[in-house]
Design a binder for these strands. Sequence first.
RNA 1: GGAAGGUUCGUCUAGCUGGCCUAGGACACCACCCUUUCACGGUGGGUACACGGGUUCGAAUCCCGUACCUUCUACCA
Length: 473
Amino acid sequence: MIAQHTMIRTRFAPSPTGYLHIGGARTALFSWAFARHHAGTFILRIEDTDLERSTPESVDAILQGMSWLNLDYDEGPFYQMQRMPRYKEVLAQLLASGLAYYCYASKEEVETMREQQRAAGLKPRYDGRWRPEPGKTLPAIPDNVQPVVRFKNPVEGSVAWRDLVKGTIEISNAELDDLIIARPDGTPTYNFCVVVDDWDMNITHVIRGDDHVNNTPRQINILKALGATLPLYGHVPMILGADGERLSKRHGAVSVMQYLEEGFLPEALLNYLARLGWGHGNEEVFDMTQFVEWFNLEAISRSPAKFDPEKLLWINQQYLKAADNERLATLVRPFMEQQIGPLASTPPLAEVVQLLKERVGTLVELADAAHLFYRYIEPAAELLEQHLTAETVPALQQLTAQFAQIEWTRESIHDAIKAAVADSGLKMPKIAMPLRVIAAGVTQTPSIDATLALIGQDTVVQRLQQQLAKAVI
RNA sequence: GGAAGGUUCGUCUAGCUGGCCUAGGACACCACCCUUUCACGGUGGGUACACGGGUUCGAAUCCCGUACCUUCUACCA
């Protein structure tokens, strides 16, 4: 139990080396939900100390992703590059107190050392050649070598913590070596920045991917050396692709924003992500308010989950069906206009959406299905040939005459078609299919009366007259 | 190679303080129903406790071993 008087503070700390991906988004979601559940504070921190790979574009992409998903943060974004003076201050402190030391071994030297260890079947680790010990003589400091700074990790014992997701984890200090906390140019490395940040920002719960499990004992050791209060840790398993390997570009969409482009609703993605590796009884479809209420770290699965695009699609469909027509119209419009240009004002897009939203899985599909209401799809010759026959054309001609006269509502269209069916003695599909083909250009539409009603009386009658006149029987 | 974690239907999972489990739900799949096409919806169906030992009257649930999976093993984060 967490003492309730302690204000809970969590953070999401991505490195800006690309878009916000699915795995990161889920970690962010869990961290966010935990903070919200406890009425705590959620912090966004950009870990941009890798100058080689960090880009401003990636920062924007991450911010955009968070915003689209509605994962709001209370503090930040903080940028590690802006906290350099603070890191250097702590670094100097560690150096001065003998808890860290300079290492003059070159990159190449360390690499050959590791090679030898590997060849000998040993675990590759820094051998401590520059680590000061009482009574030990250090090598002569070479000229022209800028040293790195290494943390003096404890040699004996082990580090253990009660992981909020995985239970107690214990790692022997023998597994850890003296990690580099500052590069030759003086810039601090990841594990050090994280420690200083989590400490300074009073993070109470570190919720992150379980690829960080092995960093945790190192960070705990540094935190202890600094005399800091330790946060609690919870490591959530990775998301795997269908083939069981870590989710990557090969598996299709991994960028959160790509789901926006593919016509997914943010709440659907969130719902899916929440269910991936976490469950609350048999609940499948729930909103974020509900999720926040239910969320707990203990229920997170300890094993990695595979990403299933099919189920995401299904959830998206559930949200589409339930979504407000006007909102959906606003969301789907750009998809349509990108394809067919500005939309006419009739039929009202919201009404078209109302008719179609239960039949599609994404906004892209919705847009595709809605196109026929705004531009004529010329029926293919084979379709006309197939559906305009000696037995159907007379009935259709009569129906067209009816259509020209009736009040243009779904009900009266329905009645007129029913009458045509009765008069001609034909089966309903014999009438309905040619109507679809002529009026919509396709064989798959919602119920024919509703479809015709939205296409409009003049348009429908005109198309019928035109095609029936051309029909060769 | 070493370390850490994991292993319930094809997938996500419920269950894991042992008996209510001849293992539940959802996606996907198949069949049927509905039907004005395609969908939606409804009903039904098949498929899972990795393997081997133990503890116990009784194990998916506890213990041990084996196999397999994932992650980490950077002057990346």
